[in-house]
Amino acid sequence: MGMGTTRNPEERAHDIPPQLLAAVTRSPVKARLFGADTYLREAAWTFAEDADVLRGTTLCVLKPDAAVGRRYGTALEALRDNGFHPADVLRVRHSRLTIRETWRFQLNFADRERIAAMDLYLGSLDCVLLVLRDERHRPGDVPASVRLAALKGPATAELRRPEHLRARLGALNGLFNFVHTADEPIDVLRDLGLLLEQPRRERVRERLLARHDASEEARRICDTIEAETPPHDLDPERSLHRLTRSAGPAGDVARAGRAGATVTPADLLRAAHHPDADPADLWDLLSVLTATLRFNTPGIERIFPNVLLGAWQEER
């Protein structure tokens, strides 16, 4: 198409079948943005004939804080109690690139120190990616991903109920909340395209179609990561106290804070990235850092609002 040429309204920006997009999102903005996204296109090539399966499938990522905070068992139990069973499980290590791509459409309003903290924390250990089958899902029901996103509960602690996943896990702040879930089926599809190469996506598809039970495999992977990872209380006050005894740069920051100086997220990040940083200080630093971050940059709007349970219930 040359400069100044008007696009034919019948031309399409991607090759994803319209019926698949209609089945996996209730957001026209997401359908347009994600539709032209290579990750979604690749996943659609794998799952184009499986819209019904996708609606009964969701993803839950157990993040590094779930390992050090010993929340794996509680998370798996809570998912099972609510009818979500692993059909497949993978160890996934985030990088700077996968963090930015996973949250590409949400990081536009994230504060700069929050993004830096995400790099430090999400890249520290493997995540556990659970591909979950919703055993309670029936044709015409809201999708599994939408049900689990609602079950996860709000980010604001005061609005949570005891049955919410974040409440059961004891979410501590905006980053230390132990799990990440997909909002609706289009997010399941895009994340599978982003995180998995074609052979691994094909195995996920085969396991979903065969109704494979990966519960024991999930438990073994979680046990292995916990055996490799020292536990941590993730308590910011105790962490700050421990850091005052550190001989590394984090110790200088913590001692200044104890003496009355203002300790900023930027100070903590500099200590974490200092050439002389002690790796043993990492989770104490992260505990203090995540408790003091400004989460969002004021005045910046979301690219699109979250698609909530009501959008799917109204259709039904």
Results as ranks from 00 to 15, higher is better:
Gly248Ile: 05
Asp65Ser: 14
Val288Gly: 15
Pro28Gln: 02
Arg219Leu: 15
Ala266Lys: 12
Phe47Gly: 11
Val307Tyr: 03
Pro17Asp: 09
Arg242Ile: 04
Ala247Cys: 10
Thr6Phe: 04
Leu243Met: 03
Thr57Arg: 00
Pro236Lys: 02
Leu122Gln: 14
Leu76Cys: 04
Phe105Glu: 13
Leu97Tyr: 10
Gly174Arg: 05
Ala51Ser: 07
Glu135Asn: 13
Gly248Tyr: 12
Leu208Met: 09
Ala214Gly: 10
Asp126Ala: 01
Glu228Gln: 15
Val92Leu: 13
Ala227Tyr: 06
Ala13His: 02
Leu209Asn: 13
Ala31Gly: 02
Leu151Pro: 00
Ala48Cys: 04
Arg136Trp: 02
Phe109Thr: 11
Gln106Trp: 12
Glu216Ile: 05
Arg211His: 14
Leu59Arg: 06
Leu269Asp: 07
Ala182Thr: 08
Ile221Val: 14
Gln106Asn: 14
Asp235Lys: 10
Pro162Gln: 12
Asp223Val: 14
Pro231Ala: 12
Ala227Val: 11
Ala171Lys: 08
Ser27Cys: 03
Glu226Ser: 15
Thr181Tyr: 15
Arg168Ala: 03
Gly251Tyr: 07
Asp281Ile: 12
Arg201Lys: 03
Lys152Pro: 07
Gly170His: 06
Gly83Pro: 03
Phe176Val: 14
Asp50Gly: 00
Ala144Lys: 03
Ala110Pro: 07
Leu90Gln: 10
Asp233His: 11
Leu76Ser: 00
His212Asn: 01
Asp50Met: 02
Gly123Asn: 03
Glu101Tyr: 00
Thr98Lys: 13
Gly170Gln: 11
Ser27Asn: 00
Ser287Tyr: 05
Glu77Gly: 14
Ala67Arg: 06
Glu158Arg: 14
Glu49Ile: 08
Arg270Lys: 12
Thr38Gly: 09
Ala182Glu: 06
Glu197Ile: 07
Ala44Ile: 02
Glu226Gly: 10
Glu49Leu: 10
Lys152Cys: 01
Thr244Met: 09
Thr290Gln: 07
Gly4Pro: 10
Leu234Pro: 06
Ile300Phe: 12
Leu20Val: 06
Asp187Ile: 05
Pro154Trp: 09
Leu169Arg: 01
Val68Lys: 09
Ala67Ile: 13
Ala117Ile: 08
Leu33Thr: 01
Gly170Lys: 05
Glu237Gly: 13
Gly251Ser: 05
Asp252Pro: 00
Asn306Arg: 06
Arg32Thr: 05
Gln19Lys: 05
Phe295Arg: 07
Leu194Met: 12
Ser287Pro: 11
Ala291Pro: 14
Phe178Lys: 08
Trp103Val: 09
Leu20Ile: 04
Val179Glu: 01
Thr264Phe: 00
Cys222His: 00
Arg302Leu: 02
Gly299Arg: 06
Ala259Tyr: 00
Val253Thr: 08
Met1Asp: 06
Asn173Ser: 05
Leu151Ala: 08
Val89Ser: 11
Gly73Met: 07
Pro265Thr: 10
Gly123Leu: 04
Ala247Asn: 13
Thr6Tyr: 05
Phe295Ser: 01
Ala87Cys: 07
Asn82Ile: 03
